[in-house]
Design a protein around this nucleic acid. Sequence first.
DNA 1: ACCTGAACACCGTTCAAGT
DNA 2: ACCTGAACACCGTTCAAGT
Lengths: 185, 185
Amino acid sequence: MSSTSARRGTRLATDDWTDAALEVLRTQGRAGITINALCDHLGVTRGSFYWHFADLDALKEAVTERWCKDTGQVLEALAVLQQLPPVDRVRAMTMHLLDEGSSSIEVALRDWARTDAKVAEAVAEADRTVFAAVEQALVQIGRSAADARVLAGVLVYAGIGFAHGDHGLPRPTPDEVDRLLTLIT
Amino acid sequence: MSSTSARRGTRLATDDWTDAALEVLRTQGRAGITINALCDHLGVTRGSFYWHFADLDALKEAVTERWCKDTGQVLEALAVLQQLPPVDRVRAMTMHLLDEGSSSIEVALRDWARTDAKVAEAVAEADRTVFAAVEQALVQIGRSAADARVLAGVLVYAGIGFAHGDHGLPRPTPDEVDRLLTLIT
DNA sequence: ACCTGAACACCGTTCAAGT
DNA sequence: ACCTGAACACCGTTCAAGT
């Protein structure tokens, strides 16, 4: 019962709850998020939660907001890639998707998105940003606007599908990614 | 098609519960499946459920089994497409994916798959079957084995992603599907 | 300002008892 | 064989009361 949580003896800030929720999301998925579990993790009782949040929905909102900020930074990092040649840029984005161990958070959020309009809009926004980046790169490579749109669509949808489907399909190897990009660009 | 739905005054069979669960899955998603809701829907009390099933997990299993049977029939129908030229075959599968209103059941099942090993294996099996069909068609079109594998991968992953992402990304038009297939085949 | 602890409603589950 | 209805444990939520 070693509750290795944030500072013991000190009172909690809203961020401590958000941190705990994100960690649980990552390790146990959506189902792991229960108020009792978070309370155990933080060493407080349930009433404490309700001082910081109106209800579980408010927690979701806070977690989502945090995720958006983080994702925004990742996307900014991608913007730096603008200096790279377009093909390398697409490859970098693809690779980022593949080795992202933290995609379990993304899956959990898309899960939430299905029953929560606010989460849905946040996820949609992120999707659109990625789509635009891929589309732009393909145009710069020299594809027609129509081709770029269609190809960016498959790529981004495939990315979403990949995040959801480590079930039965083989995980693409770096070599296969290269081959795909050669075929598509 | 021997599904007699909720006849009042008569006692229930296990299939009545599975039917009800599938309908709720389709209309309300995973969250809608509660024993109380199903009982209301069928006009019985909770104890009745536990005569037919050991617990909610057993219901899941029954629903999954049913879904596998149905999906199996769809795949058999696809096998009939073997007579079509390969390109048309891939187009037919893609179109099937796009206008499938009942993909909400698939999403709900992939949802379950994340916390239930049995559901996961069923979904994985279906994924592999579709993947093999697409790969084979691409080989028959004349692509190399390696190319076919990679392209089938993106297509199937994109299909999975599409089922999950009617959020923010534009829905592909039939014209765009044609364009994609021209680019890829 | 931040938290406790009792209380309540809801849901999954069990079970003795009814037909 | 199939179902009722009471009971219990668990979880989200509220709130008066404590520091």
